[in-house]
């Protein structure tokens, strides 16, 4: 076993596994999605809204892949190699053991990146797209925002500096992402307790996609739910989940869906009372902007009430 773990890999082998797994996993997920649709059809739960929403999800996937591909080619790949060659503290051997370590660290990094996407206005502008579907099925996993491929760069850069080969990081990143993809289903209720305790499961991820107040900003994990348990953001699924975001976007128009996060952020920036407010809109959690708006509304109402005798 140890011999296998210490067997060397080539960087191309990692690149190859990445391509291979991505390709076959996508096919497997499409099969699972087809199965979900059949089950929903038996339950008479297939609606035109669900079909429109699913098609939109795949359109956002293509748009994301296009933008993400550009980001990847333009600077992601180059910068990773440049940092790896010049600024990494060591260059770890390319072994299965290193890959396991890389997956573990990529998973905890995913937790932080994901948490950042939720608690920072700029991150939420792109990530809100993923959460805006009122449905929850495999196609929702492929619902992406315009800059979803941009932020992971900054979070994974430390792994490169730590000495992991860029292709190893890409593979680890992909594995975490793919594991997450498979969680977007309501077909699986709860798994055995030890699994639910350690691993992220469909149940935990349903909580993450919920609008129920007790579930907001919970369960950011990728593969292991232990990060949420450790860092205080865990919630158990114990009441019926309502999916989506507030305010609801109520649209299956791909343009509306894909850009609504940035449209909303742009509108808030345009109407902002000051530059410091604009800056805070970018870095503070979206709830902050909502609270500020409520506060302004209350103040305006109070002022109006004062003015009228």
């Amino acid at each position: 076993m140890m011999e296998f773990l210490q067997q060397r890999l080539t960087d191309l082998e990692l690149f190859g596994w990445d391509e291979y797994i991505n390709y076959w996993f996508f096919l497997a997920m499409m099969a699972l999605f087809a199965f979900e649709l059949i089950v929903m059809a038996f339950k008479k739960a297939v609606t035109w809204n669900l079909i429109g929403d699913s098609i939109t999800n795949f359109i956002t996937l293509f748009a994301y892949r296009f933008i993400g591909g550009l980001i990847y080619i333009l600077f992601y790949l180059t910068a990773f190699f440049w940092v790896y060659e010049n600024f990494s503290i060591t260059q770890l051997p390319l072994t299965w053991m290193s890959l396991l370590g890389c997956i573990l660290l990529a998973d905890v990094i995913y937790y932080w990146e994901h948490r950042f996407m939720h608690v920072c206005g700029l991150g939420w502008a792109t990530h809100t797209v993923h959460h805006s579907s009122p449905h929850f099925n495999i196609s929702v996993a492929y619902r992406f925002g315009p800059l979803d491929g941009f932020f992971p760069f900054f979070f994974h850069l430390p792994l490169i500096m730590l000495g992991f080969h860029p292709f190893m990081v890409f593979l680890a990143e992909a594995l975490v992402q793919l594991y997450q993809t498979a969680l977007h289903t309501q077909m699986v209720k709860k798994l055995p307790r030890p699994i639910e305790y350690i691993m992220n499961t469909p149940s935990h991820h349903r909580v993450h996609h919920a609008t129920n107040s007790k579930y907001i900003d919970k369960n950011y994990a990728g593969i292991f739910i232990i990060w949420d348990r450790m860092f205080g953001t865990f919630a158990e699924e114990d009441e019926k989940v309502k999916f989506g975001v507030y305010p609801r976007i109520n649209s299956v128009n791909p343009f509306t869906v894909f850009f609504h996060g940035f449209t909303k952020l742009g509108k808030q920036l345009w109407e902002a009372p000051s530059w410091s407010y604009r800056f805070q809109l970018l870095i503070r959690p979206p709830i902050w902007a909502w609270e500020q708006e409520q506060k302004r509304k209350r103040e305006a109402a109070a002022a109006e009430a004062k003015a009228s005798p």
């Binding site: 210490q6 060397r8 770890l92 370590g101 430390p158």
Partner: peptide
């Protein structure tokens, strides 16, 4: 998290790979 990264990185750097 940073500590975990450093520990894992250090452990992996000690590998005696073929």
């Amino acid at each position: 998290t940073i500590l975990l990264g450093l520990v894992v990185g250090f452990a992996l750097s000690l590998q005696k790979a073929e």
